[in-house]
Simulated assay, not measured.
Amino acid sequence: MRFMTDHRMLLVHAHPDDESIGTGATMARYVDEGVGVTLVTCTAGEMGEVLVPDLAHLAYEKEGGLGERRRGELDEAMRVLGVTDHRFLGGFGRFHDSGMAWHEDGHAIPAESIPDNAFWTTDLIEAADELVKVIREVRPQVLVTYDQFGGYGHPDHIQAHRVAMYAAQLGAAPSYRVDLGEPHDITKIYWTAMSESRMRESLRKLRESGDTETFKGMEPDGKLPPFVTPDELISARVDGSATVGRKMDALRKHATQVEQDGHFFSGAESGHSWWSDEYYRLVKGTAGPAGSDGFEEDLFAGL
């Protein structure tokens, strides 16, 4: 594949739709700048909740088939964002969605019953080797994945973090699995983040508008859940104001997972101002110059 620049970015996400929710504006921006953007999705999301009544039969606990449906949704979303290189880790169906349950504290945890071949319980080296192949083929300078808690505790998100971080180390080791390609050391690694100040500001606007249901249990000046990151830990803010429209259009393509009249698209927290900025923590590499708000403005800065 040829791109307008020699910059390449690899994003590792757990399920179809995760990429559009958390990094869609970033992906579209870098596609527009001629960067090679590669998305690796670790599972097909077979255990996801089906929000379209007419498609309820696709649910895992019913007839099944949701994974194949979400595969098509991901194809459509990537067409909207302009991403031409998107793959399932090890090939479609290699690793199965693990499912999840909710803890009383408001974060995800592994479910009591986990399906066979669940990504959560797969051998770490087996999964990492599949990503090592991609790293050594694509040779990205920037890797984006989740933090060690997977943002909100979903076992597949946590496993995606572990696989991405381990594969980055293994892929750089000259003596490791030479059959998987020439070693490559990724220069900068980022974890996705949600800004605490931005969340508090948004919660305040929600509550002032009379909305008490969205993010129920969270208050502007109260304790926030683990998926919210203190600003002092955040390194970069990607301004997606020029691409957020495509981000939202891509998100709409994940129709089984996203309510078309839900909080992404309606209510006080909907719209471009809420979803355009995407935040990141730099965990490997040297930060580039900071903008007026103290954050890097370009994930490739300093290369």
Rank of each mutant, 00 (worst) to 15 (best):
M1K: 12
D6I: 10
H7E: 15
L10K: 04
L11C: 13
M27N: 13
R29S: 14
Y30F: 11
V31I: 09
V35S: 12
G36Q: 14
A44M: 14
A44R: 12
E49I: 04
P53S: 10
L55T: 04
A56Y: 00
Y60R: 06
G64Q: 10
L66P: 02
R69K: 08
R71W: 01
R71Y: 08
G72R: 07
E73Y: 06
R79Y: 00
V80F: 00
V80Y: 00
H86A: 12
F88L: 06
F88T: 07
H96N: 15
S98C: 04
A108F: 07
E112G: 15
P115N: 12
P115D: 10
F119I: 03
T121P: 09
T122V: 13
E126V: 07
A127Q: 00
A128F: 05
R139T: 08
P140T: 05
T145G: 15
Y146N: 11
Y146T: 06
D147P: 13
Y152I: 01
Y152F: 12
G153W: 00
H154M: 04
D156F: 04
D156E: 11
I158E: 08
H161S: 12
A164Y: 00
A164E: 03
A168E: 07
G171C: 06
S175C: 11
D179N: 10
G181I: 04
G181Q: 02
H184M: 10
D185R: 14
I186A: 10
S195L: 06
M199Y: 02
M199L: 13
R200C: 12
E201G: 15
E201T: 15
L206Y: 05
G210S: 12
E213N: 12
F215C: 05
M218A: 14
D221V: 11
G222K: 09
K223W: 03
T229M: 03
T229F: 01
D239P: 09
A242V: 09
R246A: 11
M248V: 05
L251Q: 04
L251F: 01
H254V: 03
A255Q: 10
Q257H: 06
E259I: 04
Q260M: 10
H263F: 11
G267Q: 03
G271R: 06
H272S: 14
L282A: 10
G285T: 05
A287L: 09
G288D: 05
D293P: 09
F295M: 10
L299I: 04
F300E: 06
